[in-house]
Simulated scan of single mutants.
Amino acid sequence: MKHLWNSALGLLIVTGALLGLTLPFGKIATGAGVPPILWPFVISCGAGGVLFLVLLVRRRPIALSPHRLRYFLIAALISYAIPNLLLFSAIPHLGAGYAGIMYTLSPIVTLILSILLGVRRPNALGIAGIVVGFIGAVMVATTRGVADRPADIFWVVIGLLMPVCLALGNVYRTYDWPKDTGPIELAAGSHLATAAMLLVAVLGLGQVGSFATLADVPWLVPLQGASAAAMFAFYFRLQAVGGPVYLSQIGYVAAAIGLGAGVLFLDEHYRLLTWLGAAIIVLGVIMTTKAQSQGA
């Protein structure tokens, strides 16, 4: 376990696999009638609650400061609340596997943001990778989800907004990481803040009664909570060990898990163009990742 905690590759595989499980879990939940806004609350409440208990057992409660409080709120909004709401709203229309492909665009968007913000100068390989990734994204977008149930273009756009939020979160969390603060503390604080935001939204929308829908998936709620708690502990550790660019590559593993689960267990089928586009996106991500490593 100690070796895994210090291995960027090991953390990448474990985090990506756990992230990938949220895709089929989310589709099963929303298919059972759980509102899209409620399932992200389950994830963040479960993750934040379990990790907070771990900190209490270790006698390391979350120490609030203006910097940490700001970090928790901003990270909660752009890294979890918004992208998860987009994800679970789109999954019933696009499919778990298709939504997983969107994760793979995060490294490309991260590089684009770095260029726009002047953080990194683009080189020829990086620009080529962005172009290749964009071509793959257009190919995937034109297929509009599951082969026999093409979604409205609105949901495709919603799916494409998710990697933008993820990229923003990747950059922000590294840039503003509070000093002398461990990954479990940041994960717990960020997810408790996310859960609080989503709870206010649920109450504000008058959907208190929607909590009763969780009784339709009683086995899935604790499973998702435990999975999310483990994932985000590894997630923040991976950010500390590997940095935002390496972290963004969890989309590879998550997409593979989401596609596999969708095809094997959720009766999802995708056009050849979707698979070709996904492969081209992966090629573009490899190019942009190599370009960033060269720049570093």
Rank of each mutant, 00 (worst) to 15 (best):
M1G: 13
K2R: 15
H3E: 13
L4H: 04
G10D: 10
G10L: 10
G10K: 13
T15Y: 07
L18F: 13
L19N: 14
L19M: 15
G20T: 11
L23E: 02
P24R: 11
F25V: 03
G26S: 12
K27V: 00
P35Y: 12
P35D: 14
P36R: 12
P36D: 02
I43K: 05
G48Q: 06
G49T: 02
L53M: 15
L53H: 07
V54S: 02
L56I: 12
V57K: 14
V57H: 13
V57C: 12
V57E: 08
R58I: 02
P61D: 14
P61E: 09
I62S: 11
A63L: 09
L64T: 07
S65T: 14
R68Y: 13
F72V: 04
L73T: 08
A75K: 04
L77E: 03
L77P: 06
I78Y: 04
A81T: 07
A81L: 12
P83E: 04
P83C: 02
N84K: 01
L85N: 05
L86E: 12
A90S: 11
I91W: 05
P92I: 11
L94R: 09
L94M: 15
A96G: 01
G97C: 14
Y98G: 06
Y103A: 11
T104S: 03
I108N: 01
T110R: 03
L111N: 02
L113F: 15
I115H: 09
G118D: 12
V119N: 14
N123E: 12
I127G: 08
I130T: 08
T142P: 00
G145P: 06
A147G: 07
A151T: 05
I153S: 07
F154P: 01
G159E: 08
L160P: 04
L160W: 01
P163S: 02
C165T: 04
C165S: 04
C165I: 00
D176I: 10
W177E: 06
P178N: 07
D180H: 14
P183S: 15
L186W: 07
L186R: 03
A187M: 12
G189E: 01
T194R: 03
A196E: 01
A201T: 07
V202S: 00
L205R: 13
G206R: 05
G209Y: 09
S210R: 08
S210Y: 04
D216T: 08
D216L: 13
D216C: 03
D216P: 03
L223P: 06
Q224F: 10
Q224E: 10
S227C: 15
A230V: 12
M231V: 06
F232S: 13
Y235T: 00
F236V: 11
F236Q: 06
R237K: 15
G242Q: 04
G242P: 09
G243N: 06
P244I: 05
P244K: 09
V245Y: 05
Y246I: 09
L247S: 01
L247F: 00
Q249C: 09
G251P: 02
Y252I: 03
Y252L: 11
V253R: 01
A254E: 05
G260D: 08
G262T: 08
H269D: 10
R271L: 11
L276G: 14
L283H: 05
G284P: 09
G284M: 08
I286R: 00
T289I: 01
K290H: 04
A291R: 00
Q292G: 03
Q292L: 11
S293L: 11
A296R: 05
A296E: 07
